[in-house]
Design a binder for these strands. Structure first.
Length: 287
DNA sequence: AAGAGGCCCTGATAGC
DNA sequence: TGCTATCAGGGCCTCT
């Protein structure tokens, strides 16, 4: 799935394209996403005007003029496409699998505006959609989420206290959205590499200085990834059809058996399955 | 209560 | 060419 940076890129592009537009028609072709799309979904969002497109963690949030809304989680393979009506060619899209043309299969939802059509495509159907009744409802949906790395509440005190007596390894915690929101499997490996922390290290063994580094590098990695338009593995594109380029900056992800890129380190990047997810790290400089 | 593991799905790729 | 196994940017649910 897109992690926080990729969702942020989609959010920014969507804001430019659909802010202020009114939803004319909604078509659900397949309700069976991770959770069933509510049966009142079409009725709920029809005729609503987009106030803005927002984001929290890896969730896209359409906010309407009446302060109701709609949360979209893209799962592993969810993509959003915007088409200009009455044209066969995709003018804008975000896609992992198709680069130039809109895929025919797995277009589960179509949201039609006056001249634009927004399509939600998701082969694995791990994504889902939730309706939001009001601002309070929205806050409630995210009440059990930890802070994003950028928040001031993601500080040394919070992390150090959180890790006391925790037996899980640090990699697990970076992926745990209750601890910190928005980091996924790619950026977790990249952050730990820069921190020089081994992904299997138990959280409670981390020093204050380790916590400090986790804050610093989480912010740095996500910020840089956003600046570079996200990571375009499997052809992720933003809404203007441009590839992100952060994948060129990967130090460890998908670099198994290659040399460590840290200056003067003779280590080799290893791949290890931790809690069913691949982790990449240097066997020498990550302690 | 925290942690480990299974599972929801389709598609791409590697290996035989 | 065609089969099977493995792996994918996530996270919920169940069991211990």
């Amino acid at each position: 799935m897109p992690e926080l940076p990729e969702v942020e890129i989609i959010k920014q592009s969507l804001n430019k394209k659909i802010k202020g537009k009114i939803i004319k028609k909604v078509l659900v072709k397949n309700r069976n996403l991770r959770f069933k799309i509510p049966y009142n979904f079409e009725q709920f969002i029809r005729k609503k005007k987009i106030k803005k497109v927002s984001r929290f963690s890896k969730y896209l949030i359409l906010i309407f003029e009446d302060n109701t809304g709609c949360m979209i989680h893209l799962g592993m393979t969810g993509t959003i496409h915007l088409l200009k009506k009455n044209k066969t060619k995709t003018i804008t899209n975000t896609s992992f699998y198709n680069t130039l043309f809109l895929p025919e299969k797995h277009n589960h939802i179509e949201i039609k505006f006056n001249k634009l059509k927004l399509i939600y495509n998701d082969p694995r159907r791990f994504g889902y959609i939730l309706l939001i009744k009001n601002n309070k409802d929205l806050k409630k949906k995210f009440s059990h989420f930890g802070p994003e790395p950028f928040f001031s509440s993601f500080n040394i005190n919070y992390i150090y206290k959180y890790f006391r007596n925790k037996k899980k390894n640090i990699k697990n915690f970076l992926l745990d959205q209750k601890f910190v929101s928005g980091i996924g499997n790619i950026y977790a490996s990249e952050i730990l590499f820069l921190c020089k922390i081994n992904p299997t290290k138990k959280a409670k063994k981390l020093s204050l200085n380790d916590c400090k580094k986790i804050i610093y590098y989480s912010r740095l990695v996500l910020k840089k990834a956003i600046e570079k338009g996200g990571s375009s593995i499997r052809d992720f594109k933003n809404l203007s059809g441009n590839l992100g380029s952060f994948q060129k900056d990967f130090n460890v992800y998908q670099r198994e058996n290659l040399n460590c890129l840290k200056y003067s380190c003779s280590g080799i990047i290893k791949k290890k399955i931790i809690s069913n997810r691949s982790s990449f790290f240097c066997n020498i400089c990550q302690k």
